[in-house]
């Protein structure tokens, strides 16, 4: 599952940790290549359905961010079928949303190496994963090809 190439750039939200547990998916990290802004918004967009969007508050301090997606909200917003949510961070007072990803470490082929447990909510299964471009997405009811 490739994500659209035009949505990644040098400025991005570098993921440090992903915690899929206790009914939510929490992501922490830091903003790279953009001015530090403190708080912001975590945006999840369904791939192939540009109007379906979920916006959640993200805490921030300097370049750090910390945000969580509650699974019940995610389940309620996910359209039928196998779906992929791509994750972005919009900083307060800044135009562009930054793609969440992990590009600054020395691990190649993260899709196979950085794997996370799936959780279920509302009869649907959610699993965070890294795309082949090392961006962070969440697959719903689908298998991550490894």
């Amino acid at each position: 599952m490739h994500d659209p190439p035009d949505r990644t750039g040098p400025a991005h939200a570098e993921v440090a940790e992903v915690w899929p547990r206790d009914g939510r998916i929490r992501v922490t990290g830091r903003v790279v290549g953009a001015a530090p802004a403190g708080a912001g918004t975590l945006i999840a967009r369904v791939r192939g359905a540009p109007d379906t969007e979920l916006r959640l508050p993200a805490e921030g301090r300097d370049t750090r961010f910390d945000a969580a997606l509650p699974l019940d909200e995610l389940a309620a917003a996910t359209p039928e079928g196998e779906r992929v949510w791509d994750l972005y961070l919009a900083l307060d007072g800044q135009e562009d949303a930054l793609r969440l990803g992990r590009h600054l470490d020395d691990v190649h082929g993260k899709k196979k190496i950085f794997t996370y447990p799936a959780q279920t909510s509302g009869g649907r299964r959610f699993e965070p994963y890294y795309t082949v471009q090392d961006n962070l997405s969440i697959v719903c009811d689908g298998e991550v090809a490894r």
Partner: peptide, 18 residues
């Protein structure tokens, strides 16, 4: 092993590198 890492919530700290 991946199962064990997931179960114990060690996925941010233990990696099977291949």
């Amino acid at each position: 092993l991946r199962e064990l890492i997931h179960e114990r919530h060690l996925y941010n700290h233990v990696y099977l590198m291949g």
